[in-house]
Amino acid sequence: MGERLQRIKDKITRELGPIIRKALEDPEITEIMLNSDGNIWTEHFSKGMEQVGAITPQAGQALLATIASSLGKEITEDQPSIEGELMLDGTPRIAGSIPPKTVGPQLTIRKHASKVFTLDDYVDASSLTPLARKYLKDAVEKRLNIMVCGGTGSGKTTFANALINEISVLCPSDRLYILEDTREIQCSSRNFEHFKTSEAESMDALVISSLRHRPDRIIVGEVRDGAALSLLESWNTGHEGGISTIHARKTSLKGAFLRLEYLLQKALPGTENGQLIGEALDLIVTIEKQGQRRLITSITEVTCYNPEKAGYQTKAIEMTAADLIKKDNEGDS
């Protein structure tokens, strides 16, 4: 690192202050938020959201100016927002704004997980039943294609990391290809490659190019666009055992299907894609934030697509503990 960049990094570290620095060092904290009123909040894996301190508007403004400089940008009244990766270990993602867009300096720091929470951790946190844990471990070993569905802040990526950890434990020699827009997936496997999109190479291009490198499993951090078509086709043609996440406003089985169909329509407008979804996708796991916990609310096998009924044949996995897990009824969705 050059002398100038080192000076900027040191300045960022100082201006973050002791509260934010401590939160960045805590492996169980996933997000840090500076609100425009100066209050600092953190999102903790097991404790949820809590206020941990405050800083002055002047300190917040100085911090955002230094972060902007590290990104080769300026943050001004005419350009009041910045996004990028923080020049610190782990390169956490940041988004920040200043007045007049906000009433005061505002910053959100999303950390890349430094600790992988295992399926056992989810059971210990009462977010997953032991029976569901056993089923998911079997699903990983049987190379089922799994889609994790949830809303913003539901913990989709963190749970995907737990499933990827199971691959590393149960199938340590499998060659994993991990594709992301921003680096959030954590992998302890001995045999993996990690690729990130760029202006020159889209997610769709990454999925297609990955097929030339002999992957056993293809993992996409979050499928957001027409790359859903290439991903499902790869899962359906000899690359079973993949994992991806999908954002759905309504965290439900129906919401997951609707979102996937919408993304496939972006790739192939006017086509019927139910058959591909029914063949390529084996399992949908829904996750929600409820109170201070993130709960696995359903696990559903996708059996096939029924064109006569224009619906999916599914089978809900029995997980017991009805107060913890909301179960979908077996049937057409």
Rank of each mutant, 00 (worst) to 15 (best):
D121T: 02
A113Q: 03
A68I: 02
P105Y: 10
G60C: 11
L88D: 11
Q106S: 15
V116H: 07
S69I: 02
P92C: 04
T66K: 01
Y122I: 00
L64F: 10
E77P: 05
F117W: 14
P92A: 06
L88A: 13
G60F: 13
T66M: 03
L63Y: 06
P92V: 02
T118C: 08
R93W: 08
V123T: 13
P99R: 03
D89E: 15
I55T: 14
L64Y: 05
L63A: 00
P105C: 00
Y122H: 01
A65W: 03
A125T: 03
A62G: 04
A59E: 14
I94C: 08
L88P: 01
S97Q: 13
L64T: 01
D89A: 15
A62N: 12
I94N: 08
P105D: 03
V116G: 01
A68M: 02
T56L: 06
F117E: 05
A65E: 14
S69M: 12
G90A: 04
T76F: 05
I109T: 07
I82Y: 08
I67F: 10
K101S: 15
H112P: 01
E83G: 14
S81E: 15
E77V: 14
E85D: 10
V116T: 13
S127R: 06
G90I: 05
R110I: 09
I75Q: 01
T56H: 07
A54D: 12
K101I: 14
H112G: 04
V123E: 13
H112Y: 06
P57N: 07
P105F: 02
Q58G: 12
A59Y: 00
F117Y: 15
Q58Y: 11
S126V: 12
K73L: 15
E74H: 06
K115Y: 03
P105R: 00
L88K: 09
R110E: 05
I94F: 14
I55C: 13
P99S: 06
M87I: 03
A125Q: 03
V116L: 07
T91L: 12
E74M: 04
S126R: 12
P99Y: 07
T66A: 05
A54K: 10
G60R: 00
L71A: 06
I98N: 02
G60T: 09
Q58C: 07
S70H: 02
S70N: 01
I98T: 05
M87E: 15
T66N: 09
L64N: 00
G104P: 01
D89L: 09
I94M: 12
E74N: 03
K101D: 13
T56C: 00
T102F: 04
V103I: 13
G96H: 05
D120T: 09
E83W: 12
Q58T: 14
G104T: 01
P92T: 08
G90T: 06
S97N: 12
E74A: 07
V103S: 15
I82M: 06
G104E: 02
A113K: 01
G90Y: 08
Q79Y: 14
L63D: 04
G60I: 10
H112F: 10
T102E: 11
P80D: 10
V103H: 13
P99T: 06
S81P: 01
I75N: 02
L88W: 13
V123Y: 14
S69L: 15
G96M: 09
I82A: 08
Q61P: 00
P92D: 08
V103W: 08
I109A: 06
K101G: 11
T118V: 09
R93D: 08
L71Q: 14
S114R: 10
Q58S: 15
S114I: 07
